[in-house]
Design a protein around this nucleic acid. Structure first.
Lengths: 208, 208
DNA sequence: TTGAAAACGGAGGCAGCCTCCGTATATTGC
DNA sequence: GCAATATACGGAGGCTGCCTCCGTTTTCAA
């Protein structure tokens, strides 16, 4: 159950050649174009538009990503990568721990917001079983947990809050409405929420 | 702001003739077929399939319902009508008030469940502004409120619960997962919830 | 340099969306 | 009943998107 593909035989199924340069390039182009197109048109956007925008043929798109879902997941994974990378930078840097959380949440919302198609992908991050989503959800939870742990160690946030709860607040807020200006509203509410997270010695813990 | 269409001149824009029989018949057929097709295929199901299933031409469908949304809303309104009618019967009948609520919730979930396309329509019932949804949400809330009031008057449910909260539980439960057997699960959870609604004099009220 | 593995790209078949308009039919006035 | 006409019907047609298939092109490595 541990070496399905990755470990046992390092180079067994693809020892032949190094990947072709054009293939790599086109794949990258497709991912970038897909991000743009999904951003603008949601998850139902035309795949032919993606191919056009990437400057490749539709066949090339389908070779790299056999299904809409595959392409969507690849884009999603990249978004998650960025989120994780941002968390790493915020955690390593000299940003105050609580402000790091604030910044990360803002970035997350902005990402979810601008790319409204992503909502459909992030929502599963709470509870879905579609392999990649489980994995991504774990990574997101993980890096948020690290940020939170750091803030906790610095005594800057209350003890009785979990990464899951924060995530749920973020997704819940973002999921609800998509009226004009909702993004600002959500960011503001998140800010207030983070304020509330700050340690207040005189306030009793949440009743859970 | 009060007589845009309905009041001022009772029969002004359509005083001409009585509606043609075939038109009425086809509209009914289309609604029935649409319910079936959406039931099976979700809100993205093919409109041509609806027309085929209704035994009318695609043009006829588009004359009656100029957009997918219009057809969907008409179907939705019918579903809501049924729900409201069921509530009325349950409220008038000799069903025990609490059991009436239980039965109504089960019916609602079953309706939402079987017709998974409806979820997308019921979810807005919590907070959306698309005219019909606001209206339908109000009607649903209203008839649930009546059921609840009756149970309350009979001393069968705790005082500190609102129709909105119950609705939110129902929709929240139904919205989340659509794995195999989820419907049974949701119905069971709702049952437990209704059990919890029952008056327990020794238990303190919810902390809201 | 050259051959073949790998990737490209788009034509083509299919399905759904929606419009338009010639044809069919119900209703009304006589 | 019968004509006149308002009304509704239906599907062809133009468009777009989905996805597959395969002849052509490019890249890698010997």
């Amino acid at each position: 159950m541990e070496d399905l593909v990755t470990s046992s035989e390092p180079c067994d199924d693809t020892p032949k050649r190094k990947p072709r340069a054009d293939s790599v390039r086109n794949r990258a182009r497709l991912l970038a174009a897909a991000a743009d197109v999904f951003r603008a048109g949601g998850p139902d956007a035309s795949l032919e538009a993606v191919a056009r925008s990437a400057g490749v043929g539709i066949g090339t798109l389908y070779r790299h990503f056999p299904t809409r879902e595959a392409l969507f997941q690849a884009v999603y994974r990249r978004e998650v990568d960025e989120l994780v990378e941002l968390a790493r930078r915020l955690g390593d840097g000299d940003t105050a721990p609580l402000e790091a959380i604030r910044a990360w949440l803002r970035a997350s919302v902005r990402m979810v917001a601008t790319k409204k198609g992503m909502i459909a992908a992030l929502a599963p991050a709470v509870d879905a079983s579609a392999e990649i989503y489980v994995d991504s959800a774990a990574r997101i939870r993980g890096c948020l947990a690290r940020l939170l742990e750091r803030a906790r160690a610095a005594g800057q946030v209350r003890e009785d809050i979990t990464p899951d709860e924060i995530l749920r607040v973020m997704i819940g807020l973002a999921y609800s409405r998509d009226q004009l200006g909702w993004q600002e509203s959500v960011v503001r509410l998140l800010d207030i929420f983070v304020d509330g997270l700050a340690t207040h010695p005189d306030r009793p813990p949440l009743s859970t």
